[in-house]
């Protein structure tokens, strides 16, 4: 009997190795550009460093300073508070997007044009959105004050008022974010099973009951993604603040991401270690959400 020639290592393990080989470039870049910097940030937050000279080990001093800023209701407190306001109000994009998606999910002449118009704010750059809203709010010639004038309300300077400014920027951010959620729901609505709607109709479901019991459960994947992107979008809100107010007036519209940039990398910022400490705090906040998302995705997959 003729024995088969002994197969080489590669031939024997090809099936097991191939996926790893294909994944290798991705994993390598992910490790070097995402995972490693996370630990570097942790490490850096224990030092005082101006980004140029020698580092000085401080232990947890940076975090202690953050704590005192929190207690004194200084910049860190304001940033954290604004981050929470962003988190909650930004979620309005989800019902908003759903509403517009339901409204646009019909077959009339030219609906594609309307859909694209509603999607438009997501396509244009955040910088443009920021500029447009900054002009809209402008106290001297902005449309907002013109419109308020018609109903007899006095001029307000949204971006110059420390109590209004964050809400003003969030409103600007909601414009593209709602469009994003809308497109997620529109694709979700395409996948809704017509037979289930038919069945629901036979059982007498209409309007809100139909929406709540038949449509929404089928939109769960879309809702999940909309939730994820909105939460993450709210936590990394940076560009609008940078464009519209530079964190002002007197620092009242800062969020953690902007504050980190300001102390570490901006024109007058030379505190890399302090910036890293803020980044760690932001990372921990995000980690709560990311852990929840991963957990619910894992549960979902196990369910099937």
């Amino acid at each position: 009997m003729q024995t088969l020639p002994k197969r080489g290592f590669w031939a024997r393990n090809q099936r097991r190795l191939a996926p790893w080989l294909f994944l290798a470039p991705g994993i390598a870049f992910f490790l070097v550009y995402v995972i490693l910097p996370v630990f570097q940030s942790f490490n850096l937050s224990l030092y005082e460093w101006d980004g140029l000279g020698a580092k000085e080990y401080l232990g947890l001093r940076n975090y202690e300073d953050l704590y005192w800023e929190f207690v004194d209701r200084d910049a860190f407190f304001i940033s954290l508070k604004n981050n929470l306001i962003w988190l909650f109000l930004y979620l309005l994009a989800i019902p908003g997007g759903l509403f517009i998606a339901l409204f646009l999910n019909q077959n009339v002449w030219g609906i594609r044009l309307y859909k694209s118009l509603f999607f438009f704010p997501f396509v244009i750059s955040q910088v443009v959105v920021g500029l447009v809203f900054a002009w809209f709010y402008d106290p001297a010639f902005g449309l907002l004050n013109v419109a308020l004038g018609w109903i007899g309300l006095g001029p307000i300077n949204v971006l110059g008022d420390e109590n209004l400014v964050t809400y003003g920027i969030i409103a600007a951010g909601l414009w593209p974010q709602t469009a994003y959620c809308m497109i997620l729901y529109l694709t979700g609505l395409n996948a809704v099973d017509p037979e289930q709607i038919e069945a629901g109709r036979l059982d007498g479901a209409k309007g809100l009951r139909m929406l709540w019991h038949i449509i929404l459960p089928q939109l769960r994947p879309a809702t999940f993604i909309a939730f994820v992107v909105t939460i993450i979008g709210a936590l990394r809100s940076f560009d609008l603040i940078s464009i519209m107010t530079q964190g002002g007036p007197f620092g009242s519209s800062r969020v953690l991401a902007f504050y980190m940039f300001e102390v570490a990398l901006s024109e007058y910022g030379f505190r890399m270690g302090y910036g890293a400490a803020i980044a760690v705090v932001l990372f921990l906040i995000m980690l709560c959400f990311i852990a929840y998302f991963l957990w619910s995705m894992w549960r979902e997959e196990k369910g099937h």
């Binding site: 007197f250 300001e262 030379f270």
Partner: peptide, 22 residues
């Protein structure tokens, strides 16, 4: 001011000046 004072002091103080003016 922002060239005579160190960068960090310039930043916080100018923010203070702005707040004072408002």
């Amino acid at each position: 001011w922002d060239r005579d004072a160190p960068a960090e002091m310039a930043k916080v103080s100018m923010e203070g000046f702005q707040e004072f003016m408002v």
